[in-house]
Design a binder for these strands. Structure first.
Lengths: 342, 342
DNA sequence: CTGTTAGCGCCTTCAA
DNA sequence: TTGAAGGCGCTAACAG
């Protein structure tokens, strides 16, 4: 006997619990119970119903269930286009944990970081049980989520909601301490796009840390988070008068572009002529052609924390507005000067 | 008057069409019509209802609507862990087009390519209107989808369903022709994991093309699609007796690992000592540290085609089981010998 | 443990 | 054009 020989299923028509009930000679509630954990039903009856269901190719409807239970098991995930492209791992890890918690990930891609506004009614339409936002949400939107009972977790953002974030402050401090020890005195900062919150936070952290260790950090040069952007900004910075001894980038991809600019366009040696550091620890940072010194953003931990925080709120173990800071780890590689030289 | 001052919304309770109806002094059906395109309703009434809805923070429920209309506006997307990590752009572009078509993307991540089996009942539970699968689905599963009226589009796969795929055959042929002109005689092939369909297809295409141009293609060495895997396989291949003059990889990431293996581990020059080529044209392939000769997989086109094919089926413009082949473009860079040298 | 009854929020006939 | 009644597929409250 096949477990799934749903030969009977007519074309098109959805198989309902009613159909299964008739075939098994029981009530609809029995079918409902047979497909719910810990429902009051005898093992025998459940088995019989499952057999009938398999024969019919029946699967309980999450949609109808959601209508009754007020739980859709849908988690909305908001990402910007830039995040989806530059840090795809975020989406992947969030998806993993969301699935493990028995939910599904509904992805909303926004063109840019400030567009999270009009999306709210859409979110509500789909009855998402909760929301993880790696985009900037207006306070007004967050308040409305709260009013509608939709828990929100902000990813690498702050606001009037729970949040998880990489500890940029400590990460930058560790990096700055290391650079200070290895001869950096005067560094340029290549930032992401204007108003990119993560870039701003890293910049703020860098300014504080550089000041603490008595190094100069020049005003930020803005680029667009891409390799090409980092490349161009680096050329601009290094061809000016009195070039800096170090270039710090708001993300790895731009730092990789900076390295390529030095070696392939400007004929400079890294770290001989200029030290370069990034932030993220993307896979390419570890490849031998680059060996980029950087700070590892713990994406798997961030994703896990985000989902757990959200699920806790959904389940009413209300850790509302909890803020979780996940440590970032300095990764020293060859693009910065070695300690011996300091 | 604020457009969205849903001050009235009590905490928790969902605002229903009934609430809006009462506030506007109309029937529920009127509210329903006010939120549907082309419904029979006066502009005046619609405006009044929209005002009441805005004041209440009402958004129509897709869940309840789906139950009636049998259209969830949910598109399921199946990807393997490997795809989600190595080719994240796929997910991004699919999401874009799915959203543009007025739907939402429900992501199902599978551990490996052969696990698409038990997922079906889950898919049905969520009433997905259709399915885009970048994983291998058993014929049985595809048949059941058809029986249940769920259209499927296979992404870079073939089966008894509609499909879109990169034209690996032509792409490989162009690459082989170029390599033949530039001195390749004897090449190694570094494949992806055993049974990875895309890798197998590229391998098959490579064998045919190499034979056509009278070059030797050695038996495939299997790696895992990663940089480290490509690196290791390359070291193994090139330290044997009679190393090949060219290394062809089933994807770019491994080819990048191959280049690093040559330059940084084996002290060989690329393409001087050995030419290297990949497939995909990931962003890194164009970075000056690599300049990888490769074949561009047209991901944006593939994604668009996949979504359009699916939407056509959902809407009953039934182009069932249509197969779309999207051309791939040879991208010549510095990791292969130049034409002049041939 | 099992069946009956009501209703989740909406869309769809049908009358008016 | 508008309103009233029924039902999409399921679960929750109650009876037995």
């Amino acid at each position: 006997m096949q477990q799934t020989d749903d030969d009977q299923a007519g074309l098109g028509g959805r198989v309902t619990s009613y159909d299964v009930a008739r075939r098994a000679g029981v009530s609809q509630s029995a079918v409902s119970r047979a497909f719910r954990e810990g429902a009051s039903i005898s093992a025998e009856l459940r088995a019989r119903i499952h057999r009938a269901a398999a024969a019919l190719g029946y699967a309980p409807s999450h949609i109808a269930r959601a209508l009754m239970t007020q739980r859709s098991r849908l988690v909305g995930v908001l990402v910007t286009e830039a995040t989806a492209r530059n840090n795809p791992d975020i989406l992947f890890h969030l998806g993993q944990h969301i699935q493990e918690a028995g939910n599904r990930m509904l992805v909303f891609t926004l063109p840019d970081d400030a567009a999270g506004d009009g999306i709210l009614s859409d979110l509500l339409s789909y009855h998402v049980d909760g929301l993880i936002a790696a985009t900037t949400l207006p306070e007004e939107t967050l308040r409305r989520c709260a009013r509608h009972g939709v828990p929100v977790v902000l990813y690498n953002r702050h606001g009037i909601a729970a949040s998880v974030a990489c500890d940029h402050t400590m990460g930058m401090r560790d990096l700055a301490a290391y650079l200070a020890r290895t001869g950096t005195r005067d560094a340029a900062f290549i930032a992401g796009p204007q108003e990119a919150p993560v870039s701003e936070e890293r910049h703020r952290a860098a300014r504080a840390a550089f000041a603490e260790f008595g190094m100069t950090l020049r005003p930020a040069v803005h680029a667009d988070y891409t390799h090409a952007g980092g490349h161009a900004a680096t050329v601009a910075v290094l061809t000016g008068v009195a070039p800096p001894d170090t270039i710090l980038c708001a993300n790895d991809t731009m730092a990789l572009g900076a390295i390529d600019a030095c070696r392939h366009t400007l004929g400079l040696s890294v770290p001989g002529d200029v030290a370069i550091a990034g932030f993220d620890d993307v896979p390419q940072a570890g490849w031998p052609s680059y060996s980029l010194t950087t700070v590892a953003q713990p994406i798997p931990d961030l994703a896990r924390a985000a989902v757990h925080l959200l699920v806790d709120q959904i389940d009413g173990r209300t850790t509302a507005n909890e803020r979780r800071l996940v440590p970032a780890a300095l990764v020293v590689r060859a693009s910065s000067r070695s300690a011996a030289a300091g």
